[in-house]
Design a protein around this nucleic acid. Sequence first.
DNA 1: ACAAATTGAATTGCACACAATATAATTGCT
DNA 2: AGCAATTATATTGTGTGCAATTCAATTTGT
Lengths: 149, 149
Amino acid sequence: MNLAEQGLLLEQQLCFDVYAASRAINKAYRPLLEALGLTYPQYLVMLVLWQHEAQTVKQLGEQLQLDSGTLSPLLKRLESAGFLQRQRRASDEREVEIQLTEAGRALRQQASNVPASIFQALGLNASDYLELKRLLHQVMASVEANSPD
Amino acid sequence: MNLAEQGLLLEQQLCFDVYAASRAINKAYRPLLEALGLTYPQYLVMLVLWQHEAQTVKQLGEQLQLDSGTLSPLLKRLESAGFLQRQRRASDEREVEIQLTEAGRALRQQASNVPASIFQALGLNASDYLELKRLLHQVMASVEANSPD
DNA sequence: ACAAATTGAATTGCACACAATATAATTGCT
DNA sequence: AGCAATTATATTGTGTGCAATTCAATTTGT
């Protein structure tokens, strides 16, 4: 087997591992978030909003690296669920401001035990946790330098 | 801010990083694979088939951790594209055997430069590459121990 | 001032993911 | 042999992701 063919084997490793780990983590969140009526991407949006209540779609997209094609329908579902409201900003009618409802704020308390449960499920000690985070950031920085947004 | 609230901040870090890195990597593959007429999940299926030509849907699913709900339509698209054929196995008609076509085999040569390009784009040295792989495997093992397939 | 370019969201179209269900074939049990 | 349980795949329905397009509002250049 030549070098190129080896690549097509080794290849599958790291990138596939990131992809598989992402799906495995999503699966771990599912039962916890189901109790809150959220999917994992919806939970991420709520996390951002719990930190800073009023955000435009664009600001959410920048933090989550998601575009309006993903966020628009997701935010509508969260609005239907009663967790937030969407309204055009008066100062610039192109922007849509997202605000939590009381139910959306209340959900934060119910979610308070989720992070610890997940951390537990990941099975990493503190230093491995930080090391993994560092390596993922390095990968993202490199990849985005080559294929910018 | 109490501990639970801190978790809802820190929280976003590692799991979000894995999720964001997975999407960033997918984006890096996109232009390379577009030239081959493949998506990233389709490329993963082809990688497995290049290693071992004849596989059932179940065997592919075990290696990729994907179920028939994802694989069935994906394999039909690869069949439409002319890269593989699907046929019921005579010895057990519940199984569908996937076989590469000549075009599917030929695609391997065109893909031979993809792994090196991606490795380059990841911007990791060999030891970081292995460390990241190790940590992701550890996460997957822990997570799957808690929420088995 | 005002046409052209830009910006922010939404929409459309396509391709995953995955839970839940359905269907058909095989195996196991008696 | 015959029926229940199991197995392998497909289908359905919901929810992302993201490229490409559209549309309205704002900003820019002259």
